[in-house]
Design a protein around this nucleic acid. Sequence first.
DNA 1: AAGACGGGGGT
DNA 2: ACCCCAGTCTT
Length: 346
Amino acid sequence: MIFSKTLIAWYSNNKRDLPWRKTIAPYYIWLSEIILQQTQVKQGLPYYERFVRDYPTVFDLANAPESAVLKLWQGLGYYSRARNLHATAQYIAHELNGCFPNNYTDLLKLKGVGDYTASAIASICFNEVTAVVDGNVYRVLSRYFGVDTPINSPKGAKAFKQLAQTLIDKARPAEFNQAIMEFGAIQCRPKNPDCESCPFAKGCVAFNTQAIAVLPVKIKSAKPKKKHFNFLVLISKNHKTLLEKRKGKGIWQNLYQFPLIETKKDLDYNAFKDLVDDHSAVKGKSFELSLYNEVLVVHKLSHQHLYTRFWIVTTDDEVENAIPISTVKDYAVPILIGNFLEVFNF
DNA sequence: AAGACGGGGGT
DNA sequence: ACCCCAGTCTT
């Protein structure tokens, strides 16, 4: 109880003014929580503003084509969030008459809503006493209580959820949940936390045992895999180019890209030219190939490093399924492609 | 239990 | 180079 008292007092003095704190409407809270998954407030904020502007109700979001939702999500990453967001909006609009589930258990059944998000919505919108556990909460609790169970293990997830649940203010679950996250983001930061002015310093195990730097404990993840991407930037008759929609299970599902040739290693011009000769886009056509970037573009994701070259393919022939270059901007593309489009003078 | 899934920012 | 971010889903 003293913990939550101190925490909520800190929160009332230090909380940021954020748009989703001015409402408890489930649609807006849900939207903000999905956007903020694995995403810092600073990065997510402009996306939230644009989604609220373009889709003011869950019906507006449900009635939009997925392509438009992905376009608005472009650059935010983890695109399954956008696909699930859209699917869930359709489910709520069409199956539930626009009414969100009003408790943790039912919220948890929604696509893209896991333990954290279900707890956040249930507490903020419906005052349900269910504790959120996100990266901030792991950090605050592991340090204050000196818990060294790895946070990214099933055991850790269970232990920290349980601990948070014992601490939550049963009279003000929404305040408590938002307070502990805000405290982790602003005061109990990963690096250089502000322990000097921290109201919890006296009772903080990590602070009193010089363990701030080693908590929370996290199991190391595998090193990113290296891949070689070669994009064919076609420029054909009548100022057209070719985009393909990514399908299957991998990254950037349902986003668009230039025709891709993935290779095991970096190829020189002649070796790559042989591959292009066999590519369906230009098979049997006369074309000219030139390398756009002598220096590899390295695009780093959390689980893979993409070593990328853009190849310009010009032809005077007609190309099947080519689209006007002026319409490329309307497609949702990975930021790797988006960056290229910004500097390339089509 | 371990990977896959993005992109930006901090140290 | 490595870590983290208002995590979730699949294998």
